[in-house]
Nucleic acid binder design. Structure first.
Lengths: 249, 249
DNA sequence: TCAATAGTGTCTATGAGACATTATGCA
DNA sequence: TGCATAATGTCTCATAGACACTATTGA
C-alpha cells in the first residue's frame, strides 16, 4: 500500500515531498458591443514563443490563492474590484510546463462594463481579443483547456449566479442584458418574454428614471436600469436545460 | 507593477519561485440505508492530533491531479473505479498547514452502492462516518471548509449531473433513488411524481424484470431498475431553484 | 412618413406538484 | 383481513414561449 500519508505529513524535511511551483492563471473576460473578449498575452520567449497565453504568475506563500488572482488581475488591468471572480480549478498534468513542475490554479474574472482601455498594461504585450479569435488558434501550455473550461463555466454560471449583470456597468438597458445571455448561450431570446420575466419579480432591475440614447439606427430610447440585489445570489433566467436538447437525439 | 510574469517564467532557477508541497485530499462519500457517509481519518500526530481529517497525500510529478486522487482513493478504500470523481478546487491559504507551504487540490469521490467494508484500510485509522456526525466536530486543517464546499457541490451536482445514480449499485428501486435526492437535498419528494418524471423519458431507468424483496415492514415488492445511459450526462430532476425560496423573503 | 427599436397584451402548451385511487405482497 | 408499500390516475396552477400589437424616437 506504499508510504502512508501521515508518515509523510508529520515530517518537516523538504526532501520528503516533491516541490512544485504554484501559479495562478486568470481568464479575464469583458463584454463589449455584443462581443465577448478575453485578455491574452503574446508570449515573447520559449516555450510557446509567439502564442497567446493567459495572464498569470506565481503564488506567494504569504497570500491566499484568491489574493494572488486579484493581484494578477490588478497588475494586468489596473482593475481592483472585478464584477465576478471565482476559482475554476487546478491544472497539474505532468509536463504541462516543459521547464518545471508547475501546478496552476485557474481563475475566472469578469470586468464590469466595456473595456476602459488596456489600463496598467502594455498594449503590445496584453490585449483584449474576441474569444472567437483566440479559440481559433493554439494557445500556450494547456491554456486552451483552461479557456474551454472557463467558457463552459461561464455558460453554467449564467443560470446559477448573477454573472450576467457582472458584465455590465452600473446602469444598463434590458436589451444590453439580453445581449449578454444571447452571446454567451448562443441563443436568441424573445425580447418581450425576456423583459417580462425580469420585471415580473422585484430585485433584478431597479428603475433609474433615465433613458439611454438610441443607437445609430434610431428607435425608441430604452429605460436604464441598475442592478438589483438579487443578482448577488441567483439568476433570473434558466437556460433551456441541456437534457431537453438531449431529447432530440 | 513589480516583477513580470514572463521574466519569472523564462527562468529555470528554482530559487526564482517559492516552492510548495502539492497534495490531493479526497472527500469520499457513500450512501447507506438513507445515511450519507464520509471516509475520515483520525489524526495520530500533531498538528490537529485526535481530530478527523480527510484522506490525502502528496501529488507526484509523474502523475496528473486526477490520477493522484484515484491513487489516494484506491489506497484508502481499495476501490478502483468510483461512481463519480471530480475536482472540487484548490485550497492554499497561508498557514493552512502550520508545518510548511501546502496547496491542496480537493476531490469529491462517490462510491457506488453501500459500503463494502473498509476494504484495504485499517478500520481503526480510517472510517466511514455519517456526515452529520463529522460536521458536528472541528476537523483538522481547513478540512471543514473543504467538506462544506464538497457538500454544497454534491447538492448542486445532483441536478446538473447523474450524480444521484452514482450512489447506488448496479440495480436499485425507485424508492432508493428517491432516498438519495431526499437525503442530500433534505426535502421530501412526492413518490408518485418522482416515479413519473423518471419513467416519462427513456434512458434513466432500464427495467430488469426483477423485483426487490420488501423491507421488514412488508409491502409490495418494488421493481428493480438499472442505470440508463442518460445519467452519464444529466439529471432527470431539478431542485426547486434556490431563487424560489428567495421569494419568500 | 417610414424605419427601427422599446414596450405591452394575449394565448397556449408544457410540466411540476397535490392528492386520490388501485395493486400487490406479507403477517 | 388488514397493513404497508408500490404503482397509476387525475386535476390544477404556474410559467415559458410564440406572436400580434402599440409606443416613441430620429431621418
Amino acid at each position: 500500500m506504499g508510504r502512508r500519508r501521515t508518515g509523510l505529513r508529520s515530517s518537516y524535511d523538504p526532501s520528503d515531498y516533491p516541490p512544485f511551483a504554484v501559479t495562478v492563471d486568470v481568464v479575464i473576460l469583458a463584454f463589449d458591443e455584443g462581443v465577448l473578449r478575453l485578455l491574452v498575452i503574446r508570449r515573447g520567449a520559449a516555450p510557446f514563443k509567439g502564442r497567446w497565453a493567459l495572464p498569470g504568475g506565481f503564488k506567494l506563500p504569504t497570500e491566499s490563492l484568491d489574493e494572488a488572482a486579484r493581484r494578477e488581475l490588478f497588475e494586468e488591468t489596473g482593475v481592483e474590484a472585478p464584477g465576478f471572480l471565482r476559482q475554476l480549478g487546478a491544472y497539474g498534468d505532468p509536463g504541462r510546463d516543459p521547464r518545471m513542475n508547475v501546478v496552476t490554479i485557474a481563475y475566472l474574472a469578469v470586468l464590469s462594463g466595456p473595456i476602459v482601455a488596456a489600463a496598467g498594461s502594455d498594449a503590445a504585450h496584453a490585449e483584449f481579443r474576441p474569444v472567437a479569435d483566440v479559440v481559433a488558434k493554439p494557445l500556450a501550455f494547456d491554456h486552451r483547456r483552461i479557456l474551454d473550461d472557463a467558457l463552459e463555466c461561464v455558460r453554467d454560471d449564467l443560470d446559477r449566479t448573477g454573472l450576467a449583470a457582472s458584465f455590465l456597468g452600473p446602469t444598463f438597458t434590458v436589451a444590453e442584458l439580453r445581449a449578454v445571455y444571447e452571446a454567451i448561450w448562443d441563443v436568441s431570446l424573445d425580447q418581450a418574454n425576456f423583459r417580462r420575466s425580469l420585471l415580473a419579480e422585484d430585485g433584478w432591475l431597479e428603475p433609474t428614471g433615465q433613458t439611454a440614447s438610441p443607437g445609430p439606427a434610431g428607435g425608441k430610447p430604452a429605460e436604464l436600469f441598475a442592478r438589483g440585489k438579487r443578482w448577488a445570489t441567483a439568476s433570473p433566467l434558466r437556460r433551456r436545460s441541456p437534457r431537453e436538447e438531449g431529447k432530440l437525439l
